[in-house]
Design a protein around this nucleic acid. Structure first.
Lengths: 109, 109
DNA sequence: TTATTATATCGCAATATTACGATATATAGT
DNA sequence: ACTATATATCGTAATATTGCGATATAATAA
């Protein structure tokens, strides 16, 4: 008990849930917004900007990297993070697909 | 420690995270897809369809109701759930707004 | 080499989520 | 009134997430 029963859902449902979960935190939304605004940034910029501990920011970056939406390039002693355009577009497509399902313009029952 | 630090983020970031979190579960994705497919359904239909306990489905429905994306009308002994079109469209707009931020077509750093 | 800077990872405590049995509530049918 | 049906809520165990200090790693600077 306690864990999500992934086995009873299909690929699409699990994939969508995983992506949404990775995005479903205000710090990770803020991180993405900051990266977009600045084009790219390093972990320490985010520590200054958001006021969370370095370990916490690093952990959030890892979760965003896990779904591929950002990527990091090593630049000397720091890591430069930016949006992975291809992944970003793919996620956009997946969400659009889900949300573009036609809703009946009628009241309930 | 442990709880999300909502106070350091802005309204938009917290709102977006809350909505995404409510959607970020395969069961809730499946519930929404089923409601869309059938136009409307009752809790028990979902219990049969998804194979989760009635208490679990009821809890997931509650979370979807919390963000307003679905609404329930009492119909005799059962409750008929359907998409709240207005809320659905609003959420769609909010997500589109977030995802339509222009991404630079350049490599990282 | 030693110090500095930037990040990642480990370990842990606090909190949140998920799932479900049991039970409460409420309506319809007999 | 009694029974059946449908849903919501409570309580609880298992698991996951969040946040951070401490520490490890790795590259640059002095």
């Amino acid at each position: 008990m306690g864990a999500t029963k992934k086995d009873i859902f299909n690929e699409e449902q699990n994939r969508l849930a995983t992506v949404l979960k990775a995005l479903a935190h205000p710090a990770r939304i803020a991180i993405l917004q900051y990266i977009i605004k600045q084009d790219a940034c390093i972990c320490n910029d985010l520590v200054q900007e958001l006021g969370l501990a370095q370990a916490t920011i690093s952990q959030h970056l890892k979760e965003l990297k896990n779904i591929g939406i950002i990527k990091g390039n090593i630049e000397g002693t720091s890591v430069c993070y930016c949006i992975d355009e291809k992944a970003w577009k793919q996620i956009k497509i997946e969400l659009n697909h889900f949300f573009s399902d036609t809703i009946k313009t009628e009241e309930c029952c």
